[in-house]
């Protein structure tokens, strides 16, 4: 017979995720507005407004061989993911140590720091994956995408979300006081990444001296993958592998560092 302790050893991470999902139910309304409403508004505003201008000037299929809205739509989905993932890892993680110290409560049980890190990050997926799925439905509805391939946007979103969650978490877990540096992440990391990761325009449009921002940005890699699956953008096979491997590498790095910082903070 499996003992409860053996179950926690195996499934402890899931119990943490379960806890997070339960707590998120209180914010379901605002999460949907941020996670779904905001990209849809951007899509309508940019696609129907800016898109008309772009298509007029550049021709209807001039950007990556498709219309502006087709080019933009997958990128907006993924940009929404990094905003939600980063927010949750910033305020959720800092709060979990300081404001509502749930991590200290978890520490006093048979959970390990690894399970807390894994469970928290998996729980965060409940914030951006359902919103991404709804947004994808909107894309299908507007005939921006069709066929089954665009469904792969969801695993791409999961990969990107985990990479961002874990990297942000690794840093936030080292922060003992909030002196305004927490909002730095959103303003000076996430926002610039969305602007310079080929989200609203192809990376090649930028000055070559700025291309490195795209290369180090997990968003750019995921957006490239997203465009491949939503309208079959042209891409070298080896580059596709890089676009998959890069977020995976960030996931591993972010997890290892997060576990190290959580362990240091929770056990002395």
């Amino acid at each position: 017979m499996t003992t409860p302790f053996a179950r926690t050893r195996r499934m402890g991470w899931w119990y943490v995720a379960e806890h997070r999902i339960r707590a998120m139910r209180n914010y379901i309304g605002s999460f949907f507005i941020i996670g779904l409403g905001s990209p849809v508004l951007y899509l309508l505003g940019l696609g129907a407004g800016l898109g008309v201008l772009v298509n007029e000037r550049q021709g209807a299929e001039a950007i990556d061989g498709v219309s502006y809205i087709e080019f933009l739509a997958p990128a907006l989905l993924l940009a929404g993911v990094i905003v939600s993932a980063a927010q949750e890892s910033t305020f959720g993680v800092f709060g979990g140590f300081k404001w509502t110290p749930i991590f200290l409560g978890m520490r006093d049980t048979s959970l390990t720091p690894r399970q807390i890190v894994t469970g928290f990050t998996v729980g965060t997926m409940a914030r951006y994956l359902p919103a991404s799925a709804m947004y994808l439905l909107v894309m299908y509805n507007f005939d921006i995408v069709n066929g089954w391939r665009p469904l792969l946007l969801l695993p791409i979103a999961a990969l990107l979300g985990l990479a961002v969650s874990l990297c942000v978490m690794a840093w936030v877990a080292t922060q003992k006081d909030d002196r305004g540096q927490l909002s730095f992440i959103e303003r000076f990391v996430i926002t610039p990444l969305t602007l310079f990761s080929g989200t609203y325009f192809p990376l090649e449009t930028l000055h070559p001296g700025l291309h490195w921002i795209g290369w180090i940005s997990p968003l750019w890699h995921s957006v490239e993958l997203g465009r491949l699956v939503s309208y079959g953008s042209e891409q070298h096979g080896w580059l596709t592998l890089v676009h998959i491997a890069y977020p995976l590498a960030l996931i591993v790095l972010g997890w290892v560092l997060s576990v190290r910082h959580f362990t240091k903070r929770l056990q002395s």
Binding site: P4, T8, M11, Y15, H19, R22, G105, T109, S110
Partner: peptide, 13 residues
């Protein structure tokens, strides 16, 4: 009550 519930789950119950 939810506080008791999630805590109990941590112990694999």
């Amino acid at each position: 009550r939810e506080n008791l519930y999630v805590y109990g789950r941590y112990f694999g119950l």
